[in-house]
Design a protein around this nucleic acid. Structure first.
Length: 593
RNA sequence: GGAGUGGUAGUUCAGUUGGUUAGAAUGCUGCCCUGUCACGGCAGAGGUCGCGGGUUCGAGUCCCGUCCACUCCGCCA
């Protein structure tokens, strides 16, 4: 039916007869000659129709945008002065001998080269949106990434093994998407939040190296980088330690970036502890393109008069940190107000600042509403630790450590990018030595920071009873330009350690047996040391194509309300279906006055 | 659950202090045009101003409610 892709016709076919299939991208009718830009996934080629072929010319005149066409013609060089360097096939054109309309098209709701479309229009007409060259590029690049991943993993002995999509609901973690069982009345499968436990079982089964590029499901609220179903590159290996696993994984990412985008990532990636990341950047996924760093001030503020600072400084969970903005003295009052409002999103009550007009003059050279409340020692520490220079400005956040970190960390990213402090390029890093546990806000108990199967650092079980906050995990995140693109850990492979972790999480033996009995049992049969990682494929591809949202690298994504505008899913089902599934819907209660 | 931005022609948008017949670009339709490539020229059609209520002599514009899209907080082991 076809001899070439439109976008791949070039001077090599000069004089040849080619047959092309594609869509009418644009028609330019000059009365005596008609040009049709024919488009397929590889690009555009110009077909020319002369009036001396009466039938073909008449057909060409009737063609409208997005008609699906088959064009037979001869490749010829374009006349002098009419070469179009903007397209790959711009040196040549196809003189159409025959045009067959494979299918006409209604007038499309938008033009395929319009890139200012609203998300609403795009998603309701997704099949047409996907015809747009940008989306074709995005999805084809996604494919090239997965192929590069598969090539790398195959070459390194990883085996692709599928794991169930109908599995068991786990109480920990995100909300599950549930699937009712017809055969077992009142019982439900859950769609997997990740293949975590299955891949560990595969290690125990002796497959040694596993991978899967697979969908995961989490019923949580959406974001630009979060969809209810998303794709993980999921891996697990046996008999490798933490550093070795990271080595294999960063080589994979480095290889993929080189092969697909010709990007050279650093070798090795920088490694930073979680503690340092929080101290310096207030984030466990710092964007290293932004050079701004925190100045730690909690200790020197303990004894100042200023209660806004001394209060948090003396609180167990408090923190005071500064963010030095070089040249920040130029910031206007309006900008500072806007930043104050910005940090309010994260719960910060205010945003104090000092402008350093003349550092040599000490207190007198500082311009700020708060300087009069701070001791000489504190002011000296502010300047000494940050290296503030004339013309700089420092923002201060004080309060609960979480709020200070979130607010100042977000401000660092915002100012860094808006004010031009960020470097171009790609800045990956590993964040390591995560805590095993974090405090559960409501339940007032300890929760697993990564997941309950993460191995503690050697010997750190000793902190489980005395001070769980001190226990560190063999967990690691890969961070790229401020986004977490992958995370994993060495897993627990000894039953007694797993039991101790469950105990620390206040999961009793009976509960553990009921929920994770199959895992605990498996650990009894010579489970090998193992560990792994999972990468967010959607996020990686979105970064590579420069997309704002992972929706732009997913063929059929959901809206923020977790609906599909194309298919109108989710939707109601017949009473008959519900009855088979033993489900009766709750009456929605009318609002009572 | 919360904060914010937006919703006006098929599409992307403008619309002043509430005031006559709601505009532009593009697309679409027809006619003209033999070298364009965002072709060009002429003519034309195209509107439930998201939806519902209210204020007013009068609402695209003000108020209340609601729906949808997006961004963020919470949430996401």
């Amino acid at each position: 039916m076809r001899t070439h892709y439109c976008g791949q016709v070039n001077a090599a076919q000069l004089g040849h007869t080619v047959t092309l299939c594609g869509w009418a991208h644009r028609r330019r009718d000059h009365g005596g000659v008609i040009f049709i830009d024919l488009r397929d996934r590889e690009g555009l080629v110009q077909a020319v129709c002369d009036p001396d072929r009466e039938q073909t010319f008449a057909t060409a005149a009737s063609i409208r945008n997005e008609y699906c066409l088959r064009v037979v013609g001869v490749v010829r060089r374009r006349p002098e002065g009419t070469v179009n360097p903007a397209i790959a096939s711009g040196e040549i054109e196809v003189l159409a001998h025959d045009i067959e309309v494979l299918n006409a098209s209604l007038t499309p709701p938008f033009q395929m080269d319009d890139d200012g479309l609203s998300e609403n229009v795009r998603l309701t007409n997704r099949m047409l949106d996907l015809r747009r060259p940008q989306m074709q590029r995005n999805l084809m690049l996604r494919y090239r990434v997965t192929m590069a991943v598969r090539r790398y993993l195959d070459a390194h002995g990883f085996i692709d093994i599928e794991t169930p999509m109908l599995t068991k609901s786990t109480p920990e973690g995100a909300r599950d998407y549930l699937v009712p069982s017809r055969v077992h009345a009142g019982q439900f499968f859950a769609l997997p939040q990740s293949p975590q436990l299955f891949k560990q079982l595969l290690m125990m089964a002796g497959f040694d190296r596993y991978y899967q590029i697979t969908k995961c499901f989490r019923d949580e609220d959406l974001r630009a980088d979060r969809q209810p179903e998303f794709t993980q590159i999921d891996l697990e290996t046996s008999f490798l330690g933490e550093e070795q696993i990271r080595g294999v994984m960063e080589l994979m990412i480095r290889t993929v970036f080189k092969q697909v985008m010709d990007i050279d990532l650093p070798d090795p990636f920088p490694v930073m502890t979680y503690a340092d990341a929080m101290l310096l950047y207030g984030s466990d996924k710092p964007d290293l393109r932004v050079p701004l760093k925190f100045t730690e001030l909690t200790d020197v503020m303990k004894s100042v008069e200023f209660k806004v600072f001394s209060g948090p400084a003396n609180a167990a969970d408090g923190r005071i940190a500064g963010l030095l903005i070089p040249g920040g003295g130029e910031l206007t009052r309006g900008e500072i107000d806007a930043y104050t409002e910005f940090v309010g999103i994260y719960g910060a009550r205010g945003l104090a600042y000092i402008k350093f007009n003349d550092v040599a003059k000490g207190r007198a050279g500082m311009q700020s509403p708060i300087v009069k409340n701070l001791s000489d020692d504190a002011l000296a520490a502010i300047v000494g630790r940050s290296g503030a220079k004339n013309g700089d400005l420092m923002f201060f956040a004080a309060g609960k450590a979480k709020i200070v970190n979130d607010a100042l960390g977000a401000l660092r990213g915002k100012i860094g990018h808006e004010k031009g402090y960020a470097e171009a390029g790609w800045q990956p890093l590993w964040v390591v030595d995560f805590p095993m546990f974090e405090r559960d806000e409501e339940g007032k108990r300890w929760a697993a920071m990564h997941h309950p199967f993460t191995s503690p650092k050697d010997g750190h079980e000793q902190f489980f009873d005395s001070d769980p906050s001190k226990a560190l995990a063999k967990a690691y995140d890969m961070v790229l330009n401020g986004s977490e693109i992958g995370g994993g850990s060495v897993r627990i492979h000894r039953e007694e350690v797993q039991s101790r972790v469950f105990r620390a999480l206040a999961i009793g033996p009976e509960e553990a047996q009921q929920k994770f009995g199959f895992l605990l049992d498996a650990l009894k049969y010579g489970a090998p040391p193992h560990g792994g990682i999972a990468f967010g494929l959607d996020r990686i591809v979105a970064m590579l194509v420069g997309a704002e949202s992972i929706r732009d690298v997913i063929a059929f994504p959901k809206t923020q309300r977790a609906q599909c505008l194309l298919t109108q899913a989710p939707g109601p089902v017949d009473e008959k279906q519900l009855r088979e599934l033993h489900i009766r819907l709750r009456q929605s209660e009318p609002a009572k006055p």
